[in-house]
């Protein structure tokens, strides 16, 4: 098992190097002049040159790249010009916010999509199957910022059930002492149920927005995979042996149908991280996605590079985790590894 993990890590190294080079070059070809942007509205060309020098943007590209990699080795991702902070501390402060939201979004969509997919497969062609199809299609075709705005309009503006969309906590709460950076977990550790409730209330709408968006692939994949398994020999044997329907579906069919669903989950998780960008904008969520977008608008290279790098590493870890999970679910995969 350890050997497998080490092997996987080795194969990830070239991808990371590739990501570093590509993000470096891509951010350089973006339109916009960082120096002109930060020299302020009344800058003279001399002042712009001064800022350019201060930022090291007057050096040739190769030298800029060498400086960047040396910094990277030292764990320094550079300074963000939009927030004025080191990128590492910015991302460290914001990653838990995005992580908490994405994970909860994934949980929400799993809670809805998996049972929906199973029901649709078991009762193929029934009303619930069509409902599954409609919900999945609608969820994936509505852009997340639209779903988000509609939810805010209905549940906050019209009904007043949801708290104001003001980020992770209402202004009159203070954040729980940081342990994991996840407010839900930290507030429980601190034993502060009031803050837990407030944080959960803030999370509800953005997590549902993300969840709706992720419904489709999970529900459809569960359904398809269940259909294939339900038609297989061992299920027929199980049925013929007189096992209860519940036992056949939950214990035998579902466990075998899970493998492709897990793969899909990994993929869904990564594209949820992407969809996060828009949801974070709508809900004023202080996550990494909104951070990267703001930096992009300001031609602020360092945070964009840092963001892409962190995301790439996250994807690699995620894929590794899924590989390991395969082994847990299906011993055959483990043996081959």
């Amino acid at each position: 098992m350890l050997q497998q993990i080490a092997k996987r890590f080795l194969t990830a190294i070239p991808s990371v190097i590739g990501v570093i080079i590509i993000t470096f070059l891509l951010t350089r070809v973006l339109p916009g002049d960082t120096a002109a942007y930060f020299a302020g509205p009344a800058a003279t060309p001399a002042a712009i040159d001064e800022v350019r020098k201060q930022l090291g943007l007057d050096l040739p590209l190769s030298q800029q790249f060498i400086r960047y990699t040396i910094d990277l080795v030292h764990g320094n991702l550079g300074q963000s010009l939009t927030t004025g902070q080191p990128v590492v501390s910015d991302i460290a402060a914001r990653l838990p916010a995005s992580g908490e939201l994405t994970l909860l979004g994934l949980v929400v969509s799993m809670l809805i999509a998996v049972p929906l997919g199973i029901l649709a497969a078991v009762k193929q062609g029934s009303l619930i199957d069509h409902a599954c199809r409609i919900v999945a299609t609608a969820g994936v075709s509505l852009p997340v910022f639209f779903t988000g705005l509609v939810l805010v309009y209905v549940f906050y503006y019209l009904l007043g059930w949801a708290p104001p969309p003001l980020g992770r906590l209402d202004v009159f709460y203070s954040a729980p002492p940081t342990v994991t950076g996840f407010y839900l977990i930290d507030s429980l550790i601190a034993g502060d149920l009031e803050t837990f409730r407030a944080a959960l209330a803030q999370l509800a709408l953005p997590a549902i927005t993300l969840g709706l968006f992720a419904l489709a692939p999970i529900a459809r994949m569960t359904r398809a995979s269940m259909l294939a398994v339900l038609a297989s020999d061992f299920v027929r044997t199980a049925r013929a042996s007189g096992l209860s329907t519940r036992m056949v579906i939950v214990t035998y069919a579902f466990r075998n149908a899970m493998l492709p669903v897990i793969t899909t989950l990994g993929m869904v998780f990564s594209f949820l991280l992407g969809a996060n960008v828009l949801v974070e904008k709508v809900f004023a969520w202080p996550g990494v996605g909104s951070y990267a977008v703001e930096a992009l608008i300001a031609s602020d290279y360092a945070p964009v590079q840092g963001f892409v790098l962190v995301m790439a590493i996250l994807y690699i870890l995620l894929n590794l985790f899924i590989d390991i999970l395969y082994g847990v679910i299906d011993p055959r995969v483990r043996l081959e590894g």
Binding site: L149, Y153, G167, V282, F283
Partner: peptide, 8 residues
């Protein structure tokens, strides 16, 4: 507080 969405 920074709230990026004008609608919100």
């Amino acid at each position: 507080r920074m709230v990026p969405s004008a609608g919100n």
